[in-house]
């Protein structure tokens, strides 16, 4: 039903924009899964989207709106770039890449903790703290690209000097997608499933999210757990940023996070905050993103159509949820 509503809505928008409806839908499909190279491209988007979504599950469990994922991705990318620039002539490129992963995750985690501390200590709503820090992170990247890390000769929006190929995670020609990135994402999915379902931390996050005062009476420390959730979410977002640098772009560019942080929020909402649906919805959203790249080239339409479809899907689901639970009268969660 959701699909039908959204399809009608999108078609109406396309008619409004004077675009050929069927052609657009067809283009979205072939543009995303029409060939192996397209599919590989989708997977390249799927990786950061899934990582960010996994991270968001921790913060949503405890009832925090971690809107700052976007900035956490960027700080991960900055951390990784810093390491790779320092180790550019190292004899052990593998070790440098490993260090980049660690520092990248750390960068994302610290950025998230900053938002977390602003919330728990400074009383700043996490939505505004996270959002503000996103813009700050964007400014930081621009400053680095045009300042200390500018290309010799001319600084430009195209980013920093590309790294030596030894500092790339390899991408086999037939694969067109880095096995390291895919592997790390699968590990992150498995680890998140494990933590959320089988550890005390996961249970504690859910308890505090469900009822902070009862959790406090059970001996849990809500403030500290919030920081844990933020830190874990930031680390995963930082990992996504690191992979954007080491796998996809091989340099730091202004749009390194590509809005995947915001998009991940939609993924998790559509997945109804359930991990098991995240990889599939992330794949679908990634496909929409990749498919829509064709729109400006072929039909002179803006590629933001994918965002409209994604938003419409989530909105429809939210409304249907509210409608159903309103009728059943069984809403007891907040």
């Amino acid at each position: 039903m959701v699909a039908a509503i959204v399809l009608v809505f999108i078609s109406a928008i396309l008619v409004l924009a004077g675009a050929p409806v069927l052609e657009v839908h067809g283009l979205l499909v072939t543009g995303a899964v029409g060939s192996w190279s397209k599919l590989a491209q989708v997977l390249r988007v799927w990786v950061p989207l899934t990582l960010c979504s996994c991270g968001l599950l921790y913060t949503f469990q405890i009832g925090l709106w971690n809107i700052g994922v976007e900035g956490q991705v960027m700080l991960g990318a900055i951390g990784a770039t810093a390491v790779l620039r320092l180790g550019f002539d190292s004899a052990l490129p593998g070790a440098v890449l490993g260090a980049a992963l660690v520092v990248g995750m750390l960068g994302g985690a610290l950025w998230a903790l900053l938002a977390g501390l602003l919330k728990t200590w400074g009383g700043v709503n996490e939505i505004f703290a996270g959002l503000g820090l996103n813009f700050v992170a964007q400014g930081l990247i621009l400053w680095l690209i045009f300042g200390p890390w500018r290309r010799p000769g001319v600084a430009s929006m195209s980013g920093t000097e590309p790294f030596a190929e030894s500092l790339w995670f390899p991408t086999p020609a037939v694969w067109r997608i880095s096995p390291h990135a895919l592997g790390l994402t699968l590990v992150a999915l498995a680890a998140t499933a494990l933590v959320l379902r089988h550890t005390r931390l996961g249970l504690a996050l859910r308890a505090v999210g469900g009822n902070p005062s009862a959790s406090y009476l059970f001996g849990l420390k809500p403030g500290r757990l919030m920081l844990w959730a933020m830190g874990l979410a930031g680390a995963l977002a930082g990992l996504a940023g690191t992979l954007q640098v080491t796998v996809v772009y091989h340099r730091l560019i202004p749009a390194i996070s590509s809005n995947y942080g915001y998009l991940a929020l939609l993924v998790v909402m559509l997945a109804d905050y359930r991990l098991s649906w995240v990889p599939f919805i992330a794949f679908f959203f990634a496909a929409l993103n990749v498919g829509s790249i064709q729109l400006p080239l072929v039909l002179q339409l803006d590629s933001s159509l994918s965002g409209v479809i994604q938003g419409a899907l989530v909105l429809t689901v939210l409304l249907i949820h509210a409608w159903n639970s309103g009728k059943a009268g069984t809403r007891w969660t907040t």
């Binding site: 928008i13 159509l305 994918s306 965002g307 409209v308 994604q310 938003g311 909105l315």
Partner: peptide
């Protein structure tokens, strides 16, 4: 709801306003 609308309306503006 507000957050989803934020993202969606922005993209809708870019798309229709192209």
């Amino acid at each position: 709801v507000g957050f989803v609308l934020t993202l969606m309306c922005r993209d809708l503006a870019y798309f229709l306003g192209n």
